[in-house]
């Protein structure tokens, strides 16, 4: 019964109203970093590194697993299909090696987490850097363009 209900649970197709535009990688200003390279962002979001380049501990946060921004972010960052990224995380998670970044409910939750947690790193669709700065958030890498 459990087996059956898990199989026939609603299929989660990606959002049809896909967004476009740049994606900003953000951290808390207290992390004292002004930029990251693509390779560094990739390492932090794929669980290959636990620390920022300045050795401060880093904790990545993610959007909902079926969200369009997550798909766009990982595909642009890694050049891989999102299903390959999900398979990669399945391998790490179910071998007990590591867990994927914690999913947050929406962009407000992401901004709130980064604002309050100096170890956090996350990504959002393009925002005004000055507005973010007023909240203690720094854009350290930008993926894509208008």
């Amino acid at each position: 019964m459990i087996f059956l209900s898990l199989i026939i649970s609603p299929f989660s197709w990606a959002d049809s109203d896909a967004q476009t535009g740049a994606i900003q990688v953000i951290i808390n200003a207290q992390a004292e970093l002004s930029s990251l390279s693509r390779k560094q962002v990739m390492s932090l979001f794929l669980g290959r590194s636990r620390n920022f380049p300045n050795t401060l501990m880093a904790k990545a946060f993610d959007h909902k697993v079926d969200s369009d921004i997550r798909k766009r972010f990982f595909e642009a960052l890694t050049g891989k299909a999102i299903s390959d990224i999900d398979a990669y995380w399945a391998r790490l998670r179910y071998s007990g090696r590591a867990s994927p970044p914690k999913e947050l409910e929406d962009v407000d939750a992401v901004l709130k987490e980064v604002m309050n947690n100096k170890y956090s790193i996350a990504y959002v669709s393009e925002q005004d850097p000055e507005t973010l700065a007023k909240q203690g958030i720094v854009v350290v890498y930008t993926l894509g363009s208008h």
Binding site: D86, A87, Y88, A90, R91, Y94, S95, G96, R97
Partner: peptide
């Protein structure tokens, strides 16, 4: 061998 039960994780 550490994730061989997880079919989704390999091709």
């Amino acid at each position: 061998s550490d994730h061989r039960d997880v079919g989704y994780s390999y091709h």
